[in-house]
Design a protein around this nucleic acid. Structure first.
Lengths: 111, 111
DNA sequence: CGATCATGCCTTGACAGTCTAGGCATCCCG
DNA sequence: CGGGATGCCTAGACTGTCAAGGCATGATCG
């Protein structure tokens, strides 16, 4: 849950989405559910954040989309990583790890 | 450095500032330098982010300030944690750790 | 039958926090 | 003299998140 963690998500959602898709094609709704489940609901993905993010990423050429049918036989838009997306995922993962190490080293330094 | 890490800082700077002051009173400029040095320049604190943050935190009652003289004999504004600030620091540190664990568990899961 | 929930997509508007880019003053050093 | 470091501050643009709404379908339950 994250009333106040919402601000923390800033800039991270894109990377999480890319990572989710690195496991294979998925539709939007499934991406959100996967991230939430995977983090034990520590991160909630609001639709008002998700869909603009998907649009953003596709416009940047990091994702491709196609309309298809979900597991429950509903119309759904499936997204897949492009090569560029895969490479951006790599670098932004490194960035995150560097950044989060830096923050953690200040907030919770080990003696 | 963080050309692109800048977005990641969102919502984290406040906590970093509080943490810095938990080591004792400091003036603004020194807070910025301390965070940068402490993280090997992984996190750069821009003045355009810092001063609004200090103002924000003081307005919320998490900091107190007084004008004084720096180590180099210059006019400088010193900030100190309030009790409320100390307690907010505690909870937002926990929040950060929960959040960053969640993100890292997705981006860099250990098998 | 009607209500409600889950699935699925999307958009609008408000908001918060960061950045860029500027300004100001002092002091030191080459 | 010029430039850099120290020190503070602000205006405006920007970006990404959120809340809150809308839409359509199918299942479930009373």
């Amino acid at each position: 849950m994250g009333r106040s963690e919402k601000r923390l998500l800033h800039g991270t959602l894109d990377t999480l989405v890319l990572k989710t898709l690195s496991h294979g094609e998925r539709h939007g709704y499934a991406i959100a559910r996967w991230i939430e489940e995977r983090t034990d609901e520590a991160i909630l993905v609001e639709e008002g954040s998700l869909y603009p993010a998907l649009y953003r990423l596709e416009k940047k050429g990091l994702l491709e989309s196609r309309w298809g049918v979900s597991e429950l036989d509903r119309r759904a838009k499936f997204y897949a990583l492009t090569d560029r997306g895969r490479s951006v995922l790599e670098s932004s993962t490194e960035e995150w790890l560097r950044f989060s190490d830096a923050v953690t080293s200040i907030l919770a330094p080990e003696p």
